[in-house]
Amino acid sequence: MERDHALELVAVEKRFTRKRGSEVVALAGVSLQVRRGEVVGILGPNGSGKSTLVRVVSTLILPDAGSVRVFGADALRHPRAAQRMMNRVSVEASFFKKLSAWENLMYSAKFYGVTTNEARPRIGDILEGVGFDVKRAHEPMEHLSRGMQQKVALARALLTSPMLMLLDEPTTGLDPRSKKDVQAVIERIRSEHDASILLCTHDMDEAESLCDRVGIMVNGQIVELDEPTALKRRYQKNGRLPNLEEVFMAVTGSSFSDAEERESAEAAA
């Protein structure tokens, strides 16, 4: 493992057994490296294995095989060493909805050893930094829009100073303005410090604009991984550079929406 790798997955496999006994392959030998300071996007339809991938890295799912290292720390054997260095923002901003943003941030920072005195001055700064109206920090989370809740989720992650950020569809379901705001925060995280980011998304434009490299994930496998421009060049036809949607079609043999429908139908079966 090279020390300049923020994240290294080698041959990670995960299968889930359904109630009727059949098996679903969620991850089929995934290998991936994220270099320090790099933003790697994983593009895939719903059910392709993106969330399982993020949960395996987050130590929330134990893989059947393979290894996961975060800045050299073995996340499977020594999870707490890896956990100190990362945080995650998922599609659902999970909070105690009756508590305020301030309260949710204050207690959760302590799980990472951040005291009240250390957190208090930072919460305001970070909330402001993510474009959250600080005056609303003491309102219950249930009074906030989804976009605002997602900004608080980003603040929760940033408050613990993670070296590796795991972003699992952070903009899915947001209105266009909130989506732009959240993407701008991700852009700033990327440009203003050396946090490495693994971003899972099914938004082609988001992947292209935010990521240094983009991987295409289907059926639990990363079938392509390269810089967006390199991917486009690889699949160009008649001298015309395709967009990422066309790259996806060329790689998988089906359109993104078809793949999404198929994966969803398989998941429901």
Binding site: G113, R122, I189
Partner: peptide
């Protein structure tokens, strides 16, 4: 936006802070 916030502490002290987090 990002800077190291948490000073390095002994593990037991981090656990104590976390326990207080659950109480809070």
């Amino acid at each position: 936006m990002h800077q190291t916030l948490t000073p390095r502490r002994a593990t037991w002290l981090n656990e104590l802070i976390a326990a207080w987090g659950f109480v809070q």
